Amino acid sequence: MVLLENDAFLTELTRLFQKCRTSGSVVITLKKYDGRTKPVPRKGHPETFEPADNKCLIRASEGKKKISTVVSTKEVIKFQMAYSNLLRAHMDGLKKKDKKSKSKKTKAT
């Protein structure tokens, strides 16, 4: 998995969306990231790790291609605006949900 800067992540994510436009899908996950690179120590051992600030880890994958980035609290607003514009631009292939008519609901009850 490749850890990228925020702007590089958004450009690579754009490429992933364009590659999967006709077929395939892009999976995006977000989770809280405290900066740990090692697992939590077992019980009985002192924990000396103190996270500096809250961060968010964002991962995107398409088949074998995986990218990720870490967004700090200072950059969240800027990144969120660019990320939401990117999602709006590339989520045009979604299918609309079938609506049930009211008459069918009344007949069933």
Rank of each mutant, 00 (worst) to 15 (best):
P51I: 05
S72N: 14
E12F: 01
V70C: 01
T11R: 00
Q80W: 03
T106L: 11
T106Q: 07
K43V: 14
K74S: 11
G35T: 12
F9G: 01
K66T: 15
S72P: 01
E75F: 04
R59G: 13
G24K: 02
R15A: 15
V70P: 01
L30F: 12
A89Q: 13
G63Y: 04
L16F: 00
T14I: 09
T73N: 10
V2Y: 03
D34F: 10
E5R: 07
S84D: 15
A52H: 01
C56D: 14
I67P: 03
A89S: 15
K55F: 02
D92N: 12
N6H: 07
L4S: 02
V76N: 10
S101I: 11
P51V: 06
T29Q: 05
L16M: 07
I28Y: 02
P41E: 02
K74I: 11
D53S: 10
L10C: 01
K104Q: 07
F49K: 03
V76E: 09
K104T: 14
G24N: 04
S84L: 09
L16A: 00
R36F: 06
S101D: 10
D7F: 01
G63K: 06
K74C: 05
I28W: 01
T106R: 05
A60C: 01
L13E: 02
T11P: 01
K64M: 12
T14M: 02
K38R: 09
T14N: 06
V76R: 10
